[in-house]
Design a protein around this nucleic acid. Structure first.
Length: 602
RNA sequence: GGCCUCGUAGUUCAAUGGAUAGAAUAGAAGUUUCCUAAACUUUAGAUACAGGUUCGAUUCCUGUCGAGGCUACCA
């Protein structure tokens, strides 16, 4: 990037700024001038909307645009024409500008990527599983988002630290422990052949089922409502007792806890690996909640928080439009908020990075509002830089996933199903003749995962999304495999070019005439660096996904209309080869930012 | 009840306040002696409703209706 020529919009904005000054004595900061790529149905490369200036110019929109256009064309040699439609001023650049841009891009193996360290460091937390049940579709969205956002931030010049915070303690963990102690008969993953996280999850389900029975009995006997019945049920009381024993470091309890959590971690590891995510550091709530408690108690001493008669500790946020919020229970045990306070501090101590991004579902918006205000009250340096990357729920055609109703989509099963579908479809199309068994399996996995990841990441993170299994395994249209296929086709051209000894770098730049389609493709490639910056600013992999789809579509149209290797004009052929090289690279880089691999053949 | 999101083709998704609201899929009709047809081309179809702000509103404001989330000594 360093030795790239300046982005043309920058020059254009400066020229426009100068025109406004010279023509209308308008002082406008060139940075604030809004340019947009010209829409495809009009002629031109970049468009300036002149309406904001017509009042000052005291001219009609058309006249204003024409004057600016003439001034800019005289002063900027890359501009070779413009047209005006209503208040829209469309600039065109010379072919030689576009071609020389292409040549530079094609030579840059990191085209579009800014070296890490140019912008501030970021800690990004995602995944954050509970150790009482296996990962499901909701976690998949979380993990894919977190991992992708981290890579996008890196590509935009940030250094990132990916961290996971495992919720390995608390009442929910005690539930599965209690069920295993009561009804497990010493079952282990080895004995039963179950994956560790699945086994523990089964006991969590068992607990809930038994609790429901007890609660039902209580309701009938004492006319309790649902909450009362659940709370008063003997099982619930036992679970709370177990939590107190755990916090008191009771040897036997801690032993069971360790054993069961290790089963879960082993299970999670294989799920993470298949999903393709990883972390620089894993924090455990069991290691951070005590620090959190300390900080809460310190805050209590400084009168930032207050204590109720029953001994529970609270923060009063009513003067900031929020509520009173519990930080420590009356029995001294910690809540979710407590450990989040501790984790943030520990992380800051470890990395000294105040910018923290939390990838957590939008049902916790309120929690993070409170957390931020608590940090502020405590005067923490990271209070103002906390960012909650709040993503929407994943819904199924049948409605919301409910673990108690068994409608959750298991992460492992889903990934396996994607692999199987990829295999069936690929074999049916006869695409893998001549592949070795290993190559086949790798390809099926690449396609299956590509379909799944793209399907989830193409949706704006903020929005709720519908996961329709039938559509997620579709490989046509706006899908991961469509883009992968486009890449494979290009790689095929590049292989053949080498065989036929056609070399991209032998292009004579003066002999190229751009067709509309070629120029459209080139302009799309040109946008890539900006797309990365925008996606990073918005923390939205969806922007990368939509762009990449656009690019692939653009290439397929070009591919359909023009031949690269069978083109008799050598320079046209070499030019198109350059286009192909850069397109393949951008697709690969962009898909990489989504955590998706692209095959060379499929 | 209070607070916060969100309502775009049949369906799933796009659209920094800008031009004729884009795609995909499902539907209809086509393209392969030519670098991979998981492709390409043509066709039909949408801003929940009512006001307001302005040169211009899917986007901002108000209200109505509809969907979801939060409002736990759960996480």
């Amino acid at each position: 990037m360093e030795n790239m020529m300046p982005r043309i919009e920058v020059l254009l904005k400066e020229a426009i700024g100068k025109a406004l000054k010279d023509l209308f004595e308008l002082d406008v900061n060139p940075q604030t001038i809004a340019l947009q790529p010209t829409r495809k149905d009009y002629e031109g490369d970049f468009t300036l909307v002149v309406f904001p200036f017509v009042k000052q110019a005291r001219k009609s929109p058309e006249e204003t645009a024409r004057l600016i256009g003439e001034h800019v064309q005289e002063n900027l040699s890359e501009v070779n024409g413009f047209n005006v439609i209503k208040g829209f001023l469309n600039f065109s650049f010379t072919d030689s500008y576009w071609v020389s841009f292409l040549l530079q891009g094609a030579k840059d193996p990191d085209y579009g990527v800014t070296p890490a360290g140019k912008k501030e460091d970021v800690v990004i937390e995602f995944s954050s599983p509970n150790t009482n049940k296996p990962l499901h579709l909701g976690h998949i969205r979380n993990n894919l988002l977190g991992y992708s956002v981290a890579m996008i931030l890196e590509a935009a010049g940030h250094k990132t630290v990916k961290v996971n915070l495992v919720n390995d303690r608390g009442i929910h963990i005690c539930k599965s422990m209690l069920a295993w102690i009561k009804w497990g008969n010493g079952e282990t993953p080895e004995k039963s052949g179950k994956k560790g996280d699945k086994l523990v999850g089964d006991y969590y389900v068992k607990f809930e089922a038994e609790l429901k029975k007890e609660a039902q009995a209580l309701k009938e006997a004492h006319n309790y409502d649902d909450d009362m019945a659940r709370n008063d049920a003997p099982l619930m009381q036992e679970a709370r007792t177990l939590l107190r024993k755990w916090e008191a470091r009771d040897t036997q309890t801690v032993e069971v806890w360790k054993v069961m959590n290790n089963w879960v971690y082993k299970g999670f590891d294989s799920t993470y690996q298949r999903m393709g995510v990883n972390f620089e550091k894993i924090y455990y709530e069991s290691d951070t909640y005590l620090l959190g408690r300390e900080i809460v108690l310190e805050g209590l001493e400084k009168d930032v928080f207050y204590k109720k008669e029953d001994g529970s500790v609270w923060v009063d946020l009513s003067d900031e439009g929020l509520d009173h919020k519990l930080l420590l229970r009356a029995d001294g045990t910690s809540v979710y908020m407590t450990q989040d306070i501790g984790t943030a501090q520990l992380r800051y101590d470890d990395y000294n990075i105040p910018r923290m991004v939390y990838v957590v579902g939008n049902e916790q918006n309120y929690h993070f509002e409170v957390l931020k205000k608590v940090f502020k009250k405590l005067g923490k340096p990271y209070a103002d830089q906390l960012f909650h990357l709040s993503y929407g729920m994943v819904e199924l055609p049948a409605g919301k996933m409910k673990s108690r109703e068994g409608t959750v989509v298991d992460a492992d099963e889903l990934m396996e199903a994607m692999h199987v579908t990829a295999k069936e479809t690929t074999e049916k199309l006869g695409k893998v003749d001549g592949f070795s068994e290993d190559e086949k399996e790798t390809l099926f996995e690449t396609i299956g995962m590509g379909a799944l990841k793209y399907f989830i990441l193409k949706v704006d993170p903020k929005k709720n999304m519908l996961f329709n299994p039938e559509e997620s395994i579709d490989f046509n249209g706006n899908t991961g495999p469509f883009i992968q296929y486009t890449h494979a086709r290009i790689r095929s051209i590049l292989r053949k070019a080498e065989e036929r000894k056609i070399y991209a770098d032998e292009l004579d730049i003066t002999k190229v005439n751009l067709s509309k389609k070629e120029k459209d493709l080139l302009k799309t490639l040109y946008q890539f660096p900006e797309i990365i910056d925008q996606a990073a600013a918005a923390m939205s992999p969806a922007q990368i996904a939509n762009y990449t789809y656009e690019l692939a579509k653009e290439f397929n149209q070009f591919y359909h209309d023009y031949s690269v290797l069978n083109e008799p004009d050598k320079d046209a052929s070499r030019f198109r080869l350059n286009l192909s090289v850069l397109t393949a690279r951008v697709i690969k880089t962009a898909m990489g930012l989504l955590g998706i691999n692209v095959p060379d053949r499929m």
